[in-house]
Design a protein around this nucleic acid. Structure first.
Lengths: 146, 146
DNA sequence: TACAATGTCGACTGAATTGGTCGTGAATAG
DNA sequence: CTATTCACGACCAATTCAGTCGACATTGTA
């Protein structure tokens, strides 16, 4: 049931881009270092995010990557689905086949879980993830300073 | 994010056993046929369910498998965890490592989803799955008869 | 113009996991 | 004793995961 690293890393990258918005393009190298992602692997994820329209990239010296739209307008669900494909825990939740209920007998439970999961994920924007991280950092500093 | 067939098949098997409770042991062959599970694969799943204490098995002619306790007392969460191991969508939810929050930045979202999922799964017993299936069958018959 | 920095893309790969099969052996009812 | 049924472990093919690598395109700067 694990999310693959694709989804995890991809979201990390989006958070990193959102956090450094406004200071020009962010380089692959920087994202990879800060978020502990293998650089050449990150390449693929950035490509997927670009094709999905979440980021823009510019080449050449001083180039890098940036969000293609405001972080508030990008929800976690869309990012994850772009990277992972469907998040359904059972294949039959996406394309229900008639007669399967009698054999499998548990779709209804998973359907509820799936709906609830999608609802949670679509309620969280990349901007909120950044906010949360910033708050967490502040708390850590306060704790440390006591 | 898919549940593996282990979990799916295993739950199907438990439902099948619960449904045919009281009529003596149920054979591997029967379960496999009704629930569309490869018979020799089902073998492994029954072994895991047995080791986890959910079912008892008897050998010899007329042998088979049966629930080791009332279907009402067996919840989906326990069955699935016995078959799949942890259901956590991120590895860090089970053994959080300090410092990861700053890098990953999304645990809190997944923690909520994970908690909610576990809560849903532990609220459903195998008996309820059987009930649900029986109701579904009745409805299907009614629809057919119209 | 040359070149260095950067992103783009696709081929390739090793390891792990998934989803099984198969064969041997043990228990037991009749 | 034999047929039936479970028990268990060895084995296996295909797929997916998680990357690496190399060739190439673009562009700012000297």
């Amino acid at each position: 049931m694990l999310l693959s690293t694709k989804g995890d890393y991809g979201v990390r990258a989006m958070i990193d881009l959102a956090k450094h918005e406004g200071a020009g393009p962010v380089q692959r190298t920087e994202i990879a270092r800060r978020r502990q992602i293998p650089e050449s692997y990150l390449d693929h994820l950035l490509a997927q995010l670009r094709r999905a329209g979440f980021i823009r990239s510019v080449r050449g010296p001083g180039g890098g990557h940036m969000l293609a739209k405001p972080a508030e307008d990008i929800c976690l669900l869309h990012v994850l689905e772009a990277l992972e494909g469907s998040l359904a825990p059972l294949a039959c939740l996406d394309n229900p086949e008639p007669g399967q209920e009698a054999i499998c007998g548990q779709e209804w439970v998973w359907q509820e879980i799936y709906d609830s999961m999608r609802s949670s994920l679509s309620a969280v924007s990349v901007a909120e993830l950044v906010d949360h991280e910033r708050r967490h950092e502040r708390d850590a500093v306060i704790n440390y300073s006591i």
